[in-house]
Amino acid sequence: MEILVCVKRVPDAAENEIAVEGGALRGDDLVYSVNEWDNYAVEEAIQIVEREGGSVTVVTVGDGESEEVLRREMAMGANQGLLLSDPAFAGADGLGLATVLAAAVRRGAYDLVLTGAQADDGAAQVGGMLAAILDWPFASLVNSIEAQGGLLRVGREIEGGAQEVSEIDLPCVLSIQTGINEPRYVGLRGIRKVASVELPVLDAAALGVAPAPARVRRIDYFVPPAGAGADMLTGSTAELAGQLVELLKAKGGLK
C-alpha cells in the first residue's frame, strides 16, 4: 500500500505557555514540534506498511523550517519526505492547503492518504477538503484501520467514546484520532541517520497549482475578557495544601 501522510509543524501547546501580545502570538520563545495528531497518523501508516507492504511518504506545506518535522517523521520510519513550498502558499486557508496537497497526491500513485484529525487551530478541515477535491471517500477521527482486500474496515471515534465501524473503498482519505496506536519513540540516533537525506521540494509551478485567495482570514489573536474566573489561592506549598484541605472539607470533598 502506498501511503501519503500529511503533517504540520506547529507551536507545541503542551510545551509552551501560549501568550498573546498586540494581536499576535508572542513568538520569541515558542517551541515547535509535529502536530500531536500527525504522529499517530505516521505511526499508523508505518504499521500498515509493516503488515501489507508498500511505503510511507510524509508531506508538508511550509517553509524551510518545516524540513525538521519531515525528518523527524522519517526518523520514525517514513520512507520519503516531500516539502511543498512557495511564497504563494503563505497565508493559504484550509482550502488553499488542501488544494496544494491534492496536487501532490495527484503526482503520485497513492492508495491511502492520512492526516491528523486536527492541528493547532482546531479546525479539523484539511483531510475532509482534500478528499472532496480528489473525489475520494473520507472518514474522520479514525481510531482503527484494518485492510480487507481492496477496502479498509475503519472505526471512527464518536461522542462518548463509542466507535462507528464502516467499510471504505480505496483510495481514500482518513483523518486520524489520537490513541489509535502508541507512536514510537524517536531518538537522536534516528534523527541523525536522516539528517542529510535529500528532501525534494516542489513549488507552485512544479505542482501546477495556485491556491485561491483565502476566504477565511484571521484578523488577530486576542485575550477574551476574563470572566468571573477562579478564586486564586496563594501561599507556600504547605499553606496551599492547608487551605485546600479546609475548602475540600467544607465542600464535601473529603470522605
Binding site: 488542501a98 479546525a123 484539511v126 483531510g127 472532496a132 477521527l141
Partner: peptide, 18 residues
Amino acid sequence: MDLGPGLSVKLGAAYLPD
C-alpha cells in the same frame, strides 16, 4: 467534522469551523 469540510468544497463555499 466528518461532513462539513468536504461539503464546503462540493458547494464551492467557505468553511468556518468551530
